[in-house]
Design a protein around this nucleic acid. Structure first.
Length: 756
DNA sequence: GTCTCTGTCGTTTTT
DNA sequence: CGACAGAGAC
């Protein structure tokens, strides 16, 4: 492949970014401007034309998914040599560096990574130990303070020193807990996510020759989503790049939406101050969205003060107007979404996978989910962590973690009585004290429990037995694949037997999940057949897993509607996007409305949401909604008002425009709430609903249904109505279909059924 | 040592 | 409203 081929189809700015290989480079890449393409082609160009060896190139991303995709694309351009490029997330990179060197910081190289639940347990234990009431000192917020401190590279002492002046009485306590927390993690040979970055920096500071090794190695460094880096990550990049200064960062300050987690968009805004010789390339041509969508996005983001001006443009078509609908209730809002999914599919030949429904908070997914379910529309929800958060999975992971790292007493405490072995909280307390007295890990305390005389004989026996089983399993670690080890654990601990014995539905679901987990271990074993070093396969498996997130299994080309938070949507695109819950107090969140910094971040989030849409954007909100058990009325989101009304088509439930007649403000602003409500009231009388749509619905709702009616369904065959609930658009039917379908609850208005 | 009830609290969460 | 955690009852 020649240099020309790598540049085919690139615009001038993109080409400039690819060819500008030496010295610091800042690529300000607007949404949909093809930055991944630029990045991958730049890496390919370095290797192919500049003869840089692949392993001298580092590319850092935030998600595994992004890393995987980038690597794939580099391999597509270069062939197998692309695999030698270091493409990795910040955290995975640090794990890799620490696995080789963490012993220099006094840690075991088989360290494990503490997940959120372990962190929480640890904090609670420390609070109890230090006699602090967890009601006064909320573990969650302490943890977040500690995390922020680490992201700012502050030790406990520095944290106290830097914050004391604030006069917050909690500072001292948090600092004290932080200090204890670090010591406990160390005792457990465990690190948390933030430690991965912070300790890598400590390692580099303490061991200059280690730093030098990596500085020599990484001659060319790339960082994606640079606006999301925090202080520690910024520092890490800076250290690594100090020798060659070939640091190329890509990002968009307007898409900085993780400020609340320590991300500092000044890292990207001030890049030129850090690297005065930096070249700056602006990618402003958008290839994703229609002109209408882009105009809307631009007009919203322009309301932010803290930003560098930039104007995204496109050669794409003007496209359709943005549709805005103010619903009566959440249910009404959901129905609007469903109706429009169906009509878009009919009119424009979309498939389910072309739609995304975006919301500000996870709680909003529920109503949409129910409506989709009842309307028989397939969907997936991104986030919520689902699988790995399940108790049984966490339990097995705790067992495996303990096998990999016997010092990890947090994991041990999670499973010492799981399944029930008659070792209750009181016994565990005594056991932990016993361990501390002898300066042992709790595992060692189990193995030596017969020396203890505080514990009752029954508990001692149970613990002794547990210790023996664990020791036996641990001895097998070097000999077994991860799958075999997991099976051994399930067997020898009686975990599986206990589940099988309780014949509840819940237990069988758990067993299924465990089976699914075993397929994950199998996959890993197949991919790593050469478990050279004893036990290293297990260690790798566990760190891989703890660095996996919900983002990583966003499937592309699913035949399903995607539901997710606005945060989760960053980096994705969909032909048709619904942004629901566009109300003040929801989006922007009420808490953010009074703080200009937070409000600007919410606005960037709106910008991210709008720019996900390729062809068509729908904005909806609700006149009244149930929130925390109370019915609330919120005005339309100020972000809607920030969009030029000419770009918007406000409709009522019939799909008819309500702003066609020269209405200046078709929206619900706080000042004319009354007028607006009247404008878009969804209730135009009982017959209004079916007028709108053409073909897809056979008008199941307009028919009257009674128990005993026979219905026919394309996929499920002929069934019988066994129950009718509600009336009109809310009418739900329970229909008994032949096995294996069984009884289904469907929304009469949307279900693809006809009366026989 | 395990089960059930009551009280609290409520963003977003790339790793 | 509903999830989840901690405190009390068996």
């Amino acid at each position: 492949m020649s240099k020309n081929e790598l540049l085919v189809g690139m615009n001038d700015k993109q080409t400039e970014a690819v060819l500008n290989t030496d010295g610091p480079l800042l690529i300000m890449a607007g949404a949909g401007s093809g930055k991944t393409r630029v990045l991958t082609h730049r890496i390919a160009y370095l290797i192919q034309d500049k003869q840089v060896l692949p392993w001298h190139i580092l590319a850092i991303t935030f998600t595994n998914k992004a890393a995987r995709e980038m690597k794939e694309r580099v391999v597509n351009l270069l062939g197998p040599s692309g695999n030698e490029v270091w493409v990795s997330t910040f955290h995975a990179l640090c794990v890799r560096i620490l696995r080789r060197n963490i012993d220099k910081l006094g840690y075991d190289r088989a360290f494990t990574i503490a997940g959120t639940s372990e962190q929480q347990t640890l904090i609670k234990n420390i609070l109890k130990d230090l006699n602090y009431d967890p009601k006064t000192y909320n573990p969650r917020s302490i943890l977040s303070s500690i995390s922020n401190a680490k992201n700012d590279l502050q030790s406990p002492a520095e944290f106290i020193a830097k914050n004391e002046s604030v006069g917050n009485p909690f500072i001292k306590v948090i600092g004290e807990v932080y200090d204890r927390y670090q010591k406990e993690l160390h005792r457990n040979q465990s690190v948390d996510f933030d430690d991965l970055i912070m300790m890598t920096i400590q390692l580099f500071e303490q061991e200059p020759e280690v730093l030098k090794y990596y500085q020599d190695k990484f001659q060319y460094i790339h960082v994606d989503e640079y606006q999301d880096t925090n202080e520690a990550q910024y520092r890490l990049v800076h250290m690594l790049g100090e020798k060659y200064e070939n640091v190329c960062v890509v990002g968009d300050a307007d898409q900085s939406i993780y400020g609340w987690r320590g991300a500092n968009m000044n890292n990207i805004l001030d890049f030129q101050d850090d690297y005065p010789s930096a070249h700056v390339t602006l990618l402003e041509q958008n290839y994703r969205s229609t002109k209408t969508i882009l105009k809307a996005a631009n007009s919203v983001i322009q309301n932010n003060d803290e930003r560098r001006d930039k104007n995204l443009w496109t050669e794409n078509a003007v496209g359709e107007k943005i549709t805005y609908y103010r619903a009566q209730s959440e249910a009404d809002e959901s129905r609007f979404v469903v109706t429009n999914i169906k009509s878009e599919m009919n009119d424009n030949h979309y498939s389910y996978g072309d739609f995304a429904v975006l919301y500000r908070t996870n709680a909003q997914s529920r109503v949409i989910e129910e409506t989709l379910l009842k309307s028989n529309i397939p969907y997936t929800i991104v986030g919520g962590h689902k699988f790995y958060d399940r108790k049984e999975i966490q339990d097995i992971l705790a067992y495996l973690t303990l096998m990999a790292n016997p010092s990890d007493s947090m994991s041990l405490q999670r499973i010492i009585n799981e399944p029930k072995r008659g070792i209750g909280a009181a016994s565990v307390d005594k056991l932990v004290t016993f361990a501390n007295e002898n300066n042992w890990s709790v595992f060692e305390a189990c193995q030596n429990v017969e020396l203890n005389n505080e514990l009752g004989s029954r508990a001692r026996k149970a613990i002794d037995n547990f210790g023996a089983v664990m020791t036996d399993l641990q001895n097998q670690v070097p000999k077994l694949s991860v799958t075999d080890l997991t099976n051994e654990i399930l067997e020898k601990t009686g975990y599986l037997a206990t589940l099988k014995a309780s014949k509840t539905l819940e237990a069988s679901a758990r067993i299924e999940n465990i089976e699914e987990f075993l397929s994950v271990t199998k996959q890993f074993d197949d991919a790593h057949p050469d478990s050279e070093e004893a036990g290293s396969a297990l260690v790798d498996f566990l760190s891989d897993l703890s660095l996996v997130s919900a983002q990583d299994d966003i499937a592309e080309n699913t035949p399903e509607v995607t539901l997710m938070t606005l945060h989760a949507a960053k980096g994705l695109e969909f032909p048709v996007v619904f942004m629901i819950g566009m109300e003040d107090n929801i989006f922007p969140l009420s808490k953010a409305m009074s703080d200009s910094k937070e409000l600007e971040e919410e606005r960037r989030l709106a910008y991210v949401g709008i720019t996900r849409a390729q062809k068509k954007l729908y904005l909806t909100n609700t006149f009244s909604r149930m929130l925390y058990g109370r019915r609330q009325t919120n005005p339309a989101s100020q972000f809607i008002e920030e969009i030029n009304p000419d770009l918007i088509d406000a409709v009522n439930s019939n799909g008819r425009s309500t702003n066609g007649g020269g209405l200046k403000t078709p929206f619900d602003t706080p000042n004319n709430r009354q007028a607006r409500f009247a404008n878009s009231s969804p209730y135009q009388g009982p017959t209004s609903h079916n007028k709108k749509t053409s073909s897809n619905q056979s008008g199941a709702a307009s028919q009257s249904w009674i128990v005993g009616d026979k219905v026919s369904h394309k996929a499920w065959g002929t069934g019988t109505v066994v129950k009718v609930d509600g009336t009109g658009e809310n009418m739900e039917l329970d229909i008994a279909f032949p096995d294996p379908t069984g009884i289904k609850r469907l929304l009469a208005a949307f279900a693809p059924i006809t009366k026989e």
